[in-house]
Design a protein around this nucleic acid. Structure first.
Lengths: 220, 220, 220, 220
DNA sequence: AATGAATGAGCCTTCATTCAT
DNA sequence: GATGAATGAAGGCTCATTCAT
């Protein structure tokens, strides 16, 4: 079960399948196609991973390992400013999600899985997403007032995540609308600045006791 | 294009296919399955619509017609407060996207199409998404300072959209994280309040000339 | 479900599959092979019968219909001699099982199914075997003494059936031992005479109150 | 042929494969399954036995060795009563075939092989079946009149064998018909009594010069 | 001596589509 | 105008076997 010393084929399969799955989705990517790209027999996938779905799970895990290699999550200084801490973390996170020099297929793969889940999603959530989500929640909690209700905290975190995920989830539409940011390091920096500013502004607004502008009746 | 004289079957197919496509995606929903639900022959789809893809396009168009029936986009009063105008529009938009009393499959279908586009996406963008996007952009532009750069405006709009789309695109993950808002009218109202507050706060922060907190270097 | 008026392919499949299944068994006979013999597409089997197993069940039912066509089970005369009635019935049954002019694959198919059952066996037992078994049991019961225990009756019936089935079930071995009867009408007649004589003799012995010759201890 | 010096794996394979082959047949039992049960590599079978078929032959030979261990065929006393001799031998044979305390898979394996022969059947017939068949034939010959034709003798022997084989070959059907004898030592004893009585009665009837009851015409 | 890895042929089934009526 | 029948390609998976160590 543990990767044997010489897994030429196994490793090649894992390396090669990520971009393919990301490009065409789980169900539209045939193992024939994958094995052709990995120059191995179609039976290899089933031999090493039991089934196509098992293989897909392994690819996801493999992708997760690679996703943050060379980019360690920043640890907040003990008595650091909460806003500053969040800003730093956001810079790291958004950078690791959207950096143009980074192979884009890893995040695309995760995005596809999020929108159209397969049974492999559960493992992915626990392994990869929940830790980050917890970290982000903790940081936001420190910024909001002490007695903020959990629901409010939860919404705030979602608003932050949503601002970033849209570039992964809706890129096809944003491109058609001409609303994609420039794919350059400078463009990414500007985008990050924007998200940080927007987020801190939003959190500040949440911190005030105010009621939102004249909410007369619920929609509909 | 115009409904043929005797189109009982044709109409039934269009009505029945939406939820199925929304539930399992374009490629995973078989025409056998659809025709079984519509109690008609498997050849009917190709007979009436030429091919599966043509049928899918027709379903999307049909869905768009239904999507906003009984819920007209609010028109801003001439000299109204820009923030107020945006807030009102957001209430309407989020409500039409997430209201629990409303059949959810239309938006789900659009969300799936956004993440995993088929050739039918282009038509959908022009017909359904671009008008809304334009309207939203206009409203945000009125809130931001007069000389705001297009890129900044564009980012702001994306930040608003992203806050909402996440509930459609990432619901599978949010549910597993326990981060989904309550599915009730009251829960939706609270969520809308949150988005409005967060958004207006974010836009206010963007309006200030300041630079975000100490941005030393871009992420890695 | 009911055979439609024009089932060219469906009928051809049913006709052609019997000998093939009989020759190589259910699991060793590929639908590719069958469809090649029926000159139709490999998908036809699944289209008409849902699955290979469903097809096999249909072949069995079809075979059962054909098995006794033109050979109606003899009905005993009202006050006829029980021995005579049984003899007549045995003549008919053995003849229909072993007659050399009759296509042998039907019985071979049933025999294979009996020894190595598939899920289709249950239906076959109820439809085809139980009625005959019941008839035979009734006839034997009339020959044995009135108060014969059910277990004794059951064993007697089994002894009769076993004498016949061996020629279907163990023919491969009997041939190698040189113990197969001649495959001719005359040979079959002699065999039938033998079974009738042996059976009536055996039943007569059972009817006597005697204990079998010196049964000291059970084997081993 | 002779067991190699270090044959732990080889022996384990032989021991473990018998019941599996008996349960599911030669073609339906995968070597993967067998090797999993024997806790060895899938290549072991081919390594030790050359091929699956070679392995199967070895299993059959191994089974034959075990089949009659601890149960030696009774040798008739010189001047013993022929009926008594046959009865004694039948007791031993049926007991060794059907005794519930005895692992049943050996006989089941042979039964499967008889109905659906593989190339390994020939060896099995010569080694295991022909000697018994010869012995039985000799005993029956002593009971029938001196000048009995070989065909008649052969039929008589088959009638005896058939009475027993049915419980091995048709057990699936007999169970469904509720016609299986009780699986207990007492039940077996009763069954043996029955077969002995029925057989001796049948042989007695054969010995008479009579023709069977009014055989008018052969069946259809 | 023995094994984990890898192979290629074959399996049954499903698919969107087209044909003949 | 509409359908039941039929099609061929492709799908993932299992198999007994062989290779390289």
């Amino acid at each position: 079960m543990v990767p044997a010393p010489s897994d030429a084929t196994r490793t090649r399969l894992l390396e090669v399948a990520g971009p393919l799955f990301a490009a065409r989705g789980f169900r539209d990517t045939g193992i024939k196609e994958i094995c052709a790209a990995a120059r191995c027999n179609v039976a290899s996938v089933n031999y090493h991973f039991g089934s196509k779905l098992g293989f897909y799970g392994a690819v996801l895990a493999h992708a997760h390992q690679r996703a943050f290699v060379g980019s360690t999550m920043p640890v907040p200084a003990a008595g650091a400013d909460p806003q500053q801490t969040l800003a730093t973390w956001l810079r790291w996170w958004i950078g690791s999600m959207l950096h143009p020099d980074r192979p884009t297929w890893v995040q695309t793969l995760l995005a596809k899985e999020i929108v159209d889940p397969t049974p492999a999603l559960d493992a992915m959530v626990e392994r990869s997403i929940r830790p980050m989500h917890g970290r982000l929640t903790t940081m936001v909690k420190r910024i909001l007032p002490p007695r903020t209700k959990p629901a409010k905290l939860r919404d705030a975190v979602n608003s932050i995540i949503g601002q970033v995920l849209i570039y992964k989830h809706a890129s096809a539409v944003l491109e058609r609308l001409g609303a994609m940011p420039e794919e350059s390091a400078a463009g990414l920096d500007r985008l990050i600045d924007h998200v940080v500013t927007f987020t801190l502004g939003g959190l500040a607004a949440l911190a005030k006791p105010s009621s939102p502008t004249t909410r007369r009746r619920s929609a509909r």
